[in-house]
C-alpha cells in the first residue's frame, strides 16, 4: 500500500474530529473520500499532511511512519497537497506560484515540469504572467493542482477541487485528473462532496460519516448502492446548492 491510515484520531481542542479512521490507498489508484459537510474529510487530509497531527493511530507512507513528521517533511517524501480553498498565492504570478510548487524539486527539472503542467492546463500558459488573484475560480483550481504537480509527487492529495465551479469546468478538471493518473501514474487521493464525479473517476471510494468510515467499495459499487444514491447523489445534489 502506498498510504495506509490506521485507527487515526484527531482532535481540535476537545472536539474529536476523527474517531478512528482506517483507510488505504494503493499505488497507481484513484481513491476518493466522500461525505457530508463537517464529516471530517478535510481533517483527514490535513492529518495525513501532519497539520494537525494525529492524536492516536498510525499513518504510513511507502512503508515509512509519517505520523509524527511535520508538514514540510511529509511533503518532501513525495506527497503533494492541493489544499481546501485552493490557497494559491494571490499577489504572485502564475509562474511564481508554479515556481513555489517546485520548491522541493531539482532546479534543472523546472522547465520540463512547467512544460508538462502547461500541457495539462493550456490556459495557465496563456495566463502565466497574470497574478494568481486575478484568475477565475476554475483557473485558480487548475493552478492549485498544477502547483502541486510541480513537485513530481507520487501521491496527490486533492481537497474538493470541484468546490464552487461550473459543471463544465468540473468536468474538465476531472478529465485532467484522470490523465494525471493514467499517463503519469500518479496516485490520487481525492476528497469530494461532488460524489457523482468523484465516484465515476475513482477506482475505490470511502464514505465518511461523523469522523469515521461508514462504507467502502469500488466506485461502481458505491454508485449503485441505494443508500449512497439517496444520501449523496440524488438528494445530495439539492443539499449542495
Amino acid at each position: 500500500m502506498m498510504l495506509s491510515v490506521t485507527g487515526v484520531h484527531t482532535f481540535y481542542g476537545h472536539i474529536e474530529a476523527l474517531k478512528g479512521v482506517d483507510l488505504e490507498v494503493g499505488a497507481g489508484e484513484v481513491v476518493t473520500l466522500i461525505g457530508a459537510n463537517g464529516a471530517g474529510k478535510t481533517t483527514l487530509l490535513m492529518t495525513v499532511c501532519g497539520n494537525p497531527q494525529a492524536a492516536q493511530g498510525r499513518i504510513v507512507f511507502d512503508g515509512e511512519d509519517i505520523t509524527r513528521l511535520s508538514t514540510y517533511e511529509i511533503v518532501r517524501r513525495g506527497i503533494a497537497h492541493a489544499p481546501e480553498g485552493r490557497r494559491i498565492f494571490p499577489r504572485m504570478s502564475v509562474i511564481e506560484n508554479l515556481q513555489l510548487g517546485a520548491t522541493i524539486g531539482q532546479p534543472e527539472d523546472f522547465a520540463d515540469d512547467l512544460e508538462r503542467v502547461f500541457l495539462l492546463f493550456p490556459i495557465l500558459k496563456e495566463r502565466r504572467e497574470q497574478r494568481g488573484g486575478t484568475l477565475s475560480g476554475g483557473e485558480q483550481q487548475m493552478l492549485a493542482i498544477a502547483r502541486a504537480l510541480m513537485s513530481r509527487p507520487r501521491l496527490l492529495l486533492l481537497d474538493e477541487p470541484s468546490l464552487g465551479l461550473a459543471p463544465m469546468v468540473v468536468k474538465h478538471i476531472f478529465g485532467v485528473l484522470r490523465r494525471i493518473n493514467r499517463e503519469a501514474g500518479t496516485t490520487v487521493f481525492l476528497v469530494e462532496q461532488n460524489a457523482f464525479h468523484a465516484l465515476r473517476l475513482a477506482d475505490r471510494g470511502y464514505v465518511m460519516v461523523n469522523g469515521a468510515i461508514a462504507m467502502t467499495g469500488t466506485g461502481r459499487e458505491l454508485m449503485a448502492d441505494p443508500e449512497i444514491r439517496r444520501a449523496y447523489l440524488e438528494g445530495g445534489r439539492r443539499d449542495r446548492a
Partner: peptide, 24 residues
C-alpha cells in the same frame, strides 16, 4: 532566489507554504 520567494509565499499564505514543502 528560493529563500526570497519563500518569504513572499509566507506573507501570502502560510498554510499553502507548508503544503509545498517549505519549512516556516
Amino acid at each position: 532566489l528560493p529563500v526570497g520567494r519563500a518569504w513572499e509565499a509566507l506573507r501570502e499564505d502560510e498554510i499553502a507554504c507548508r503544503s509545498l514543502g517549505l519549512n516556516p
